[in-house]
């Protein structure tokens, strides 16, 4: 918690002079205002922990303004706005489980699963005979995300992607 807002640590740089006090230079995103700020703390300093809870919910659909999720046990539904979904919108797959962070009952962060499987909607055919593919090529996925895939992967195939790095992992297991 910082200035009354729950925050997310984006980067934490450990700074320590040869003989002396260690500091942490942290880059923080305020989750409500979306502001990114930098702050320096002495190592060992503490701040109030934010009273947030993470819940596992299945993604249902979007109406363009909100993204709807459902608790598969209670069937309770929750709607997250654009600010909460952010850039992760490109990794939302229907029925996939996402981690939703709630603060005072309202969703403030939507985190997709580490790996998702998506269909390629468009990619160049690639070179014939190249099965190893070193450089790769860009491919557009059904969610709108663009990832680099090996040359042998074609339009219509389903691929597995690491949502943390945005990198192609493999073809989906059938």
């Amino acid at each position: 918690m910082l200035d009354g807002e729950p925050c997310n640590i984006l980067e934490n740089e450990f700074v320590k002079p040869g003989k002396g006090q260690a500091f942490s230079r942290v880059k923080i995103r305020k989750l409500i205002s979306g502001k990114v700020i930098e702050k320096t703390f002495k190592s060992g300093d503490s701040v109030e922990g934010a009273d947030v809870i993470d819940t596992e919910l299945a993604y249902l659909y979007t109406d363009g303004e909100f993204w709807h999720f459902m608790n598969n046990e209670t069937f309770e539904q929750i709607a997250a706005d654009e600010k909460a979904v952010g850039e992760n919108v490109k990794w939302l797959v229907e029925n996939d489980t996402c981690t939703i962070t709630l603060w005072n009952g309202a969703p403030i962060v939507v985190q997709p699963a580490n790996f998702v499987e998506l269909e390629i909607t468009e990619t160049d055919p690639g070179l014939k005979g190249d099965t190893a593919g070193t450089g790769g090529k860009p491919a557009t996925l059904s969610s709108g995300a663009i990832v680099r895939v090996p040359l042998f992967v074609q339009t219509g195939e389903v691929v597995r992607v690491d949502t943390r790095s945005g990198e192609y992992v493999s073809r989906a297991q059938k």
């Binding site: 700074v15 002396g20 500091f23 002495k42």
Partner: peptide, 10 residues
């Protein structure tokens, strides 16, 4: 010294 170390290192 803590302040000196902070200012010097940064």
């Amino acid at each position: 010294d803590t302040l000196l170390m902070l200012l010097f290192s940064q």
